[in-house]
Structures are given as C-alpha cells and as structure tokens.
C-alpha cells in the first residue's frame, strides 16, 4: 500500500468543497478551484486533532483509525514539513485493531467461566455474566498482545484537486473518506466513469462530456442481439 516503492495501486477521489452559498465545486480543477485562503493552516489544527492515537487495552474500542506520516506509521506527530510538501498533502491512514486469536480467547474464557462458577457455586451463568467475563478476559488478553497496525499512503494533489489513496479495499476507503471529511471539511467523490467525465470536459468540445441528458439516454452496448448469443 505504498506510494514510495514498488508498483502503484490506488483509488482516486475528487475533492469537492462546499461554498458559503451551498454550491459544491471541484477543488483544484477549475479556475475558481483554489482552496480558500488559510485553508491549510486551519486544517492543520484539525489534522493534529485526528492524528492516530494508539489503542489502549483498557479502552473499549477494538479498532481506531487516524493520520500518521506517509511511509512512517509510527510517526503520529505529523510535523507540518512532512505533511505539506510542494503542492501535496501527504499522509498515512493508519488503522489499529485488536486481533485476539479465536482459540486463545475461547480457552481463556472457558478457564475464567470455570473459576467463576466455582466462586459463585452455580452451574449456569446468566447471559450478562458471560458477557462481562468475556469483556474482562478480552482486556486481559489485549494487555499481553499488541494491536495489528495497517497504514495506507494517501497523497492529495492540491493543484489537481485529487486524492490518491493507495488501497482498493472498500472498508479502508470508506473509513478514510469519513476521516478526510471530518479533518478537512471537504467531500471526496470516488472516481468512476461518470464522475471522471465532468473533469475531462474541454472548452472546445462539441458536446459536454458530462451532459446529463446524454448520459441519461445511454444504454449498454449490445454486441450480439438477444437470441443470437
């Protein structure tokens, strides 16, 4: 999932900003697509607010995502000079998750249930008691493990108004889009045949490539008429 080495695999997202009048415009692609003055300075504070905070075994969350330095998942200090670079905002999207092996959890839970049954002198435990025991055991095991860490590189080209996210995993994309919007207050629109068309429109084009009426009239091309296939 790296932008820095090997072959590149990434999803593209178009950055859109909502104006004061409520209009949505593409950031970076149009003549008026520049970011509002002071946008990056203001967003840096929010960026620090959404920097990755490593998981703690005593916290209830089993998973958390946040920003880190691109290419360096352990650096969550996000120094400005490593984030904003010559027209790019470079970040790592880090997700930490507690992964307790199922067999380990089941064994430890069975032991804990046995001990608890002996302590209270009952054969059967209520559903609530079992849930509480599971919570206690889970926290105990988390203290003996380290969370799994996954980081995906992200680079926002400010001139192009384009975010390249080096993953195609749907869950990672959804979480990233959510965090990006919370951090920068800008919407991300995933690239698709339809959304790309509006960015390709040339001034000398005889037809508007994103003309809604033309797209509405499109039906899939059929090479072989029905019955002949």
């Amino acid at each position: 999932m790296s932008a820095l080495s090997g072959s590149l695999s990434y999803s593209r997202f178009f950055v859109t900003l909502q104006g004061r009048d409520g209009t949505i415009r593409s950031a970076g692609s149009a003549a008026d697509g520049s970011l509002p003055r002071g946008f990056l300075d203001r967003s840096y504070e929010k960026l620090l607010h959404h920097a990755m905070r490593p998981l703690d075994a005593d916290e209830p969350e089993s998973e958390r995502s946040g920003w880190c330095v691109l290419g360096d998942p352990l650096d969550v200090s996000l120094p400005k000079e490593r984030v904003y670079l010559e027209g790019f905002v470079n970040l790592g999207f880090r997700t930490d998750k507690w992964v307790i092996p199922g067999a380990m959890l089941r064994t430890r839970l069975r032991q804990a249930e046995l001990a608890y049954r002996e302590q209270v002198g009952r054969e059967k435990l209520s559903r609530r008691e079992r849930a509480e025991l599971k919570e206690v055991v889970t926290r105990e095991l988390r203290k003996k493990l380290v969370p799994s860490t996954r980081a995906v590189d992200l680079t926002w080209s400010l001139d192009e108004g384009l975010v390249r996210f080096f993953s195609h995993t749907a869950s990672a994309m959804l979480s990233m889009v959510d965090l990006f919007e919370k951090t920068f207050g800008a919407k991300l629109v995933a690239e698709s045949p339809y959304t790309l068309a509006s960015r390709l429109r040339g001034e000398d084009d005889p037809i508007a490539l994103d003309d809604e009426a033309l797209w509405e009239a499109l039906t899939p091309t059929i090479l072989v008429p029905e019955g002949d296939a």
């Binding site: 072959s7 695999s9 999803s11 593209r12 995933a190 690239e191 045949p193």
Partner: peptide, 8 residues
C-alpha cells in the same frame, strides 16, 4: 467499473 489503476 472504477477506472482504477492497479499494479502501475
């Protein structure tokens, strides 16, 4: 479907 680039 997505026009995404892979293994570039």
């Amino acid at each position: 479907d997505t026009l995404a680039l892979r293994a570039l």
